[in-house]
Design a protein around this nucleic acid. Sequence first.
DNA 1: TTGACAATCCGAAACGTTTCGGATACTATT
DNA 2: AATAGTATCCGAAACGTTTCGGATTGTCAA
Lengths: 340, 340
Amino acid sequence: MPTTLKDISKQSGYSVTTVSRALTGYDDVSSSTRAHILKIADQLGYQPNHAARQLQGQRTMTLGLIMPERMPTYEDDFFSVLLKGITYEAANNGYDVLTSAAHPNQSELDTYKRFVEGKRVDGMIVARTHRNDSRIAYLQSSNMPFIVHGRLTSEEQSNFHYIDVDSQLGLYLVTKHLIELGHEKIGLILPQADLAFTDYRWRGYLNALDDHQLVYRPDYCTHGNLTYQSGLDEADYLLTNYPELTAIIATNDWMALGAIARAEQHGRIVGKDFAIAGYDDIPAASQAHPSLTTVHQPIYDVGVQLTKQLISIIATTPTTYHQTLLKPHLVVRESSGDSR
Amino acid sequence: MPTTLKDISKQSGYSVTTVSRALTGYDDVSSSTRAHILKIADQLGYQPNHAARQLQGQRTMTLGLIMPERMPTYEDDFFSVLLKGITYEAANNGYDVLTSAAHPNQSELDTYKRFVEGKRVDGMIVARTHRNDSRIAYLQSSNMPFIVHGRLTSEEQSNFHYIDVDSQLGLYLVTKHLIELGHEKIGLILPQADLAFTDYRWRGYLNALDDHQLVYRPDYCTHGNLTYQSGLDEADYLLTNYPELTAIIATNDWMALGAIARAEQHGRIVGKDFAIAGYDDIPAASQAHPSLTTVHQPIYDVGVQLTKQLISIIATTPTTYHQTLLKPHLVVRESSGDSR
DNA sequence: TTGACAATCCGAAACGTTTCGGATACTATT
DNA sequence: AATAGTATCCGAAACGTTTCGGATTGTCAA
């Protein structure tokens, strides 16, 4: 049974109140008694009881992140890496991080409610937004500080603090890159339609075609689910139905890697007579063969930024929304090939 | 301000006690009043205050994981992936996960104390053990349930619950594999000497040499720090000083990938006239060129297992140590080449 | 009619902390 | 010598929950 204020009080002869005030640094206690109390607290290895503090209405010094109900894929480490950035930056500022996922027989939203209304955290981080995102709607209706990685779709209002990577720009850049290499018939493998960034990526592709007077062919666009397997599948679909394609853009690297594998099975030599590009720049992208042309997303750093912002939001409750759009950059490697 | 038991009490006309007992399912309240109370609680969207529960001595339904002080490397996602497994499995059992890292001006051990003595968790998970591990010593002296991923070194007593992958076997397998391909002069890049698994991996290498009557050359062994960069550096050192080497085993994949790159700069053709093997089987390993022969570690699953075990330990406080040693398996790919 | 027993409810205390509103004793000012 | 001010301390209440030990009612058997 850990030491409490009462123990220190007994040992030192001072009241619990004074001990508390000494320990939390009020100017209301003489420096000699403070020193005395500090020493005893140290001797006894005092650690404040977190629950008691919280109960009485304090900051929890804890940030919350909830993992999505079903990971889109086992191999997807987006949340893990983000969480790594969040945890370290939180720790730098004296915060801890509470993570969870939906409990059995509970919805993801229930988990948000547990955290928010159970007063377990001072702020929430939400990531991978989707169309009509009920988590965001809920948080807006609560008065829990929160920050979002990503926005809502371009038709929706994003009235909240967010940090997003401009994936419209990202896809514009990679599409432009391929067009400038001479490609005119470019397949596109998008993620699930209800993910908010699908919208932006699609627009980026569209804009690039427009800017170069190329016609947009909706049938060149398919939807995968961010896995390697779906990269295989969708590439297969595109290559068998539209053999005129000379390039494929996949909107994440795992799908791109799948697409490379399948394209080569179709007899295309990726990086030579066929181009493939991805998105994310995961570690495997640089190791792949051919190495993958892609768009770099600094996930760890985004985690750090989100945390920094959220903590400042908690501290200051700003009246205006803090919204940042990071510029991604294109990483040209072998898979997009030389100019044709 | 969220609803409390008192609110429900007022609304329903029953006492706080009865409301509490109705909600937590005592048989001490008639089914009609329970139904009534349940309904009101639902209407009001009642969420129990976690702090109040904890304070009064309940389970926290929270597991703790602390990230190491300095990540050995930015690219190392070991903890992130482990945490992903832990979080999902914990959620499956109604638990949340509290993560942190050392706060400024505090040691890693202080963080353990904060969690344990601040009564913030019901159990702790510790990973990546090192020689003379003070975290484990501390947890043993507390009576907080905990489970460890990894053991202490073979000279130390591992008197605690753990799940480890038998990396001695792992390194034995990969060394044997190379020897059977005809290699006799095999370099070894080990991790930092104070990591507990360094000891086991070294022994595995040694055993394999012994079993095949090959002499052990201590100077063929160097120490890296698990990064790609140190793979470059150590491979460079080995190749320039011991050009007679025909193979290098790196004890993790990132160092192996670095070693491949450097070996090719030294004019070796990896997979042909030179063999390289790694350890971990990270996603990049299968994508690498040449693809990397390595030893598979199921990190996500280990996270799941650890969580399962820890929860059962919390529930039953077993008197005997639960210790599992998982068998890793060799994944042969191109980088170890054909028989010579 | 009485006693025993079950069913249902509730008051009060406790968990460990912070904070509000004083209380006390000393010092400096008039 | 009285007043005001300052420095230092503390009692009690509060946060929201659970639990211990009854209290109240009603039922049923003797």
